[in-house]
Design a protein around this nucleic acid. Structure first.
Lengths: 225, 225
DNA sequence: TCTATTTGGTATAAGATTGGTACAATTTAG
DNA sequence: CTAAATTGTACCAATCTTATACCAAATAGA
């Protein structure tokens, strides 16, 4: 595996150890000569790696003293996303997606409807395949966000979707998505799309709320099992 | 599976590894010759794949050095948020905050009300100081999000609020926040808080919508000047 | 306090590694 | 069959790594 680590690789190794907490803040790293021997590279290479981390603000190099970790893991916002719980996710979607439907009514183009139809077809052909359905479902809700042309909303939805694509949620899909549930979702998706097509903002928003309520119920039901 | 990978397929493999975080930002990809051997293709094919990723902005190719991942979700977040336009921000808040009010009705504690009262007092004492008012206003809306106890919503609102604290928005405040507007905001804030206190979710949500509509109007009016 | 040790800072030159490019032969797709 | 893509090869230029030596700053111990 590790044939010939270079400065970038050394920096990557140390960066991961720092951000993962293996090397805590204020810790002193081993001396450059020690690190060089440990990773089997020249001292200049270790030096270059440490300078990269220094310019990133991860470590502080003090001449004659050593190299110290200076890193505040609290400002790491990504952890919030990774640790979001299912009901928190649903509540967030409850806040966002009905209004996204209202905005979609205002901005949806024929091209958007064509793409949405394709996704609905794909989902309707996948009632027995939760994995394929779930992927198309995510793209459908993403598409609705994209029709708003609001980059901030699109980004927020993409962040929320990144949660759903994580490994821990695969099990959630497996226990909540049976054929009858998927069939119900498909029906609701089509109703929502129709309401947007006929330019009924409040109806589209209400249908989306019902859709999310269905999802919330299937979640709590599964959790009770 | 491994039939005959072409340049597009190689690019797809690497793209997934990058976006899924297997290859983190600043990491160096294996040398073209290594990748060619790994995937069983010629170096030219790997080269084409890397050029695709380069034009997508996912990697940076440096002659004599290597190919480096430059895709960082966190940086993208900053870019999106920094470039958000005022009306996009209002629309996003329109999506989020009414429902946050509904959730606040369910979860608000006496301590939350006490903190909210403090902020209202601070804002009411700042009708002639847009800077102080605006700061307290941000904290008020943040507090509402915090009462939901939904870490995902709290994080989203904090991200949105980070926009409002930026320099370019100072000018926006200056031209939209005169004394009468601030007085109106204060009145609306108090109405919202009262609706939450009396546990009227829909009334709180409606009042929040009216509040945001007022903000939207003052924005468009200022933009027309 | 003074000294020895440890640590980072700098410089250098040779050699290894990497991407850049060109071209003809071959395979694949339409 | 034709056009495009892939392959295999060779060489070039840019960059990085190595190895060594010595200097300066900080630290630890007498």
């Amino acid at each position: 595996m590790g044939k010939k680590p270079g400065a970038t690789e050394i920096a990557g190794i140390l960066r991961r150890e720092i951000t993962k907490g293996v090397l805590a803040s204020k810790d002193r790293l081993p001396a450059e000569r020690i690190l060089a021997e440990k990773y089997g590279v020249a001292r200049g290479t270790v030096r270059e790696a440490l300078n990269q981390l220094d310019s990133e603000g991860l470590v502080e190099i003090r001449a004659g003293s050593g190299t110290y970790v200076i890193y505040d893991p609290a400002e790491r916002a990504n952890a919030v996303i990774s640790n979001a719980r299912p009901l928190e996710l649903i509540d967030s979607r409850f806040a966002l997606e009905p209004h996204i439907c209202r905005l979609a009514v205002l901005h949806a183009t024929p091209d958007d409807f064509r793409k949405a139809e394709d996704l609905l077809s794909e989902m309707e052909a996948s009632v027995s395949d939760p994995v394929v359905f779930s992927h198309a479902d995510t793209r459908f809700h993403t598409l609705l966000a994209q029709t708003t042309s609001n980059s901030l909303l699109i980004w927020i939805i993409s962040q929320i979707n990144s949660v759903r694509n994580q490994e821990q949620w695969a099990h959630m899909r497996a226990i909540t998505l049976d054929e009858s549930i998927i069939a119900q979702y498909n029906k609701q998706h089509r109703q929502i799309l129709n309401a947007i097509r006929t330019r009924e903002p409040e109806r589209a928003a209400t249908l989306m709320k019902e859709h999310l309520e269905t999802a919330r119920l299937s979640l709590t039901r599964a959790a009770a099992t």
